[in-house]
Amino acid sequence: MKRLLRVIFGLLKELSDESAYRRHLAAHNLRDSREAWRDFSNARFQKKFSNPKCC
């Protein structure tokens, strides 16, 4: 049950890009800030919305 909840929460964090943001902060040795999120989300959204959405 604990494992299932962990997977569900992990999925929600992945779908919301929160995990990717944490990885971005760790990879670039940054602290959570408005500027860090802006840089991350600009690059993330540009990539994300360059791919067609499924029908």
């Binding site: 919301s16 929160e18 408005r34 991350f40 989300s41």
Partner: peptide
Amino acid sequence: LRYWRPGRVL
């Protein structure tokens, strides 16, 4: 997300 609570998507 942009100005008040950046990154708190959930």
